[in-house]
Write a protein that binds this DNA or RNA. Structure first.
Length: 107
DNA sequence: ATCGTGACGAACG
DNA sequence: CCGTTCGCCACGA
């Protein structure tokens, strides 16, 4: 019998779901919590793999990069949506379009 | 097993 | 501050 060891993706989703409303975290942060401190890129890869039906249960918008900014290089519409969702949750973006970690960082 | 890819991150200039 | 470069990791072909 094989142990049901959860995939990296699943772990990432689980952690993302545990982010409380009104808070945000970074890819690197999730990487650390998942047990792979250097797998920040893989975290982004995992969230990108979210299907439309899945993104309703996983608050992907609460994950931003270490600079406190929305990371999308392309797919601008997605970035705008993310910012809108976060602002509706109470997250405040500063003049430089970044979030103040001291106020909203999780954990 | 090897290669290419990507919603990252830290270091440089 | 900004853009570039390099290193890391997981996944699919």
């Amino acid at each position: 019998m094989k142990s049901d060891k959860p995939n990296f993706y699943e772990i990432v989703y689980q952690i993302t779901k545990s982010i409380p409303k009104g808070k945000v975290t970074s890819y690197g942060r999730i990487a650390v919590l998942s047990g792979n401190p250097r797998a920040a890129r893989a975290v982004g890869y995992a969230l990108n793999a979210l299907k439309k039906d899945k993104e309703q249960e996983v608050p992907w918008q609460r994950v931003i990069n270490a600079s406190g900014a929305i990371s999308f290089k392309s797919d601008t519409s997605r970035a705008i949506l993310q910012r809108k969702l976060l602002e509706s949750e109470g997250i405040v973006f500063q003049e430089n379009d970044r979030v103040d970690w001291k106020l909203f960082e999780w954990p």
